[in-house]
Design a binder for these strands. Structure first.
Lengths: 213, 213
DNA sequence: CCTAGGGCTCGGCCGACGGATCGGGCTGCC
DNA sequence: GGCAGCCCGATCCGTCGGCCGAGCCCTAGG
């Protein structure tokens, strides 16, 4: 039996969720709360398997308490009317493993509870879509592009550039790599030219994007 | 009516998928293929709404043709027995909007087809879980530490430091934020002092670690 | 009211660092 | 031998960064 706590500031919504979930034989609603403080208290006292947590609530809102609720043990599914990027990002970073819209059909809601109780994750389709695109964009795309740009560098030059990206000055790099400071400057200059960079900071940015540390 | 092409090297699997999908009144299977080449040909000729694409196939495998199939128009759902990280990453980068395991129940398979046809995305729960982790665990440790260090900065100072992290020089920052270069230098100096940094590159590193772009 | 403090804005000065340029030595290859 | 690429070095100059001071605005508090 999966033990669930539902949190929403509107009593009507809580009642609706309870009805939907209790209709499944393997799910039982063991507690309710109307704000973040109540949610945390119930999570710690009742130790439920899953907490359905509304995003917007008076007092402490759902996103704010989410990290603490997660820390208390249960899996957290965020519930909201609007799937704003800001909400999704904060929720996922807080450790939520579910993010559903309030127009989710009853069958899927119960399925989501079972899914997260089993240790997996469930997102609304629109949210999944957004997550994928943000993954595809910020993923290895920029990294490979950066590596491509760094390709023309000589082995030695790359070594100097990596030192630059560590925030070291030319003198310090010279000591570390046992060469003259003038030489370091020369390498940096040619790296700047090859990479069409105007700044040593831009070199550091490339190294960071290329994930070379 | 949602028009679907199923691609799998095993004839039995194709037949099974066709049976499942044709059972839904709003879905019709308009074509089949046994390898990547066939998948691409069918996608271009039949212009289906959705392509179910097996990952592992003899000849050109699913992950390899996925980008071209996506480019041809249809939404792509990857199908596989194993949800290896490598598979998922490549698939999502290729532009797939679905990633399902072959043990997905028929009802969810049809739901997934409808979901992607509607422009949204559908992943297997285990895949979603992994995606969330890789999104959330993008090093909150170092990130929060960096934010902690950046905390003492005033709003204005942080703005200048972020410009520094973009690789801009003092003069350029002055233009962008419409202030004197002397002011920029003053802010940079104080930021360096507050953060115990000796270099503007080190400021950039902090901003990067703090993930502020 | 007016004083004190903090943040933002500027200017000037100067030492230090960063970049551009030129040249030389070394290797491998045509 | 000539050429090309990499590595190293030295010199010149612009930019950066530290340090001084100053004025302005706002808020807090006597």
């Amino acid at each position: 039996m999966i033990r669930v706590v539902v949190v929403d500031d509107e009593q009507l919504v809580r009642a609706g969720l309870r009805l939907i979930l209790e209709a499944a034989e393997d799910i039982t609603v063991v507690g309710e709360a109307a704000d973040g403080a109540g949610a945390l208290e119930q999570a710690q006292r009742l130790r439920p398997d899953v907490v359905l947590l509304d995003v917007r609530m008076p007092g402490i809102d759902g996103l704010t308490v989410a990290p603490e609720v997660v820390a208390a043990g249960p899996k957290v599914i965020m519930l909201t009317t609007f799937d704003l990027d800001e909400y999704v990002h904060r929720a996922l970073r807080a450790g939520a493993v579910g993010f559903l819209l309030k127009d989710t059909p009853p069958r899927e809601l119960a399925a989501a509870v079972r899914t997260v109780a089993a240790g997996n994750a469930m997102l609304a389709p629109t949210v999944t879509r957004r997550l994928i695109s943000s993954f595809a964009e910020r993923g290895p795309a920029r990294r490979d592009a950066a590596r491509e740009r760094l390709a023309p560098l000589t082995e030695r030059e790359l070594a100097i550039v990596r030192e630059v990206a560590r925030g070291h000055g030319n003198a310090e790099i010279a000591r570390r790599l046992t060469m003259s400071e003038a030489t370091v400057k020369a390498h940096v200059s040619r790296a700047l030219a090859k990479l069409h960079a105007g700044n040593r900071v831009q070199l550091a940015i490339l190294v960071y994007d290329a994930d070379l540390l």
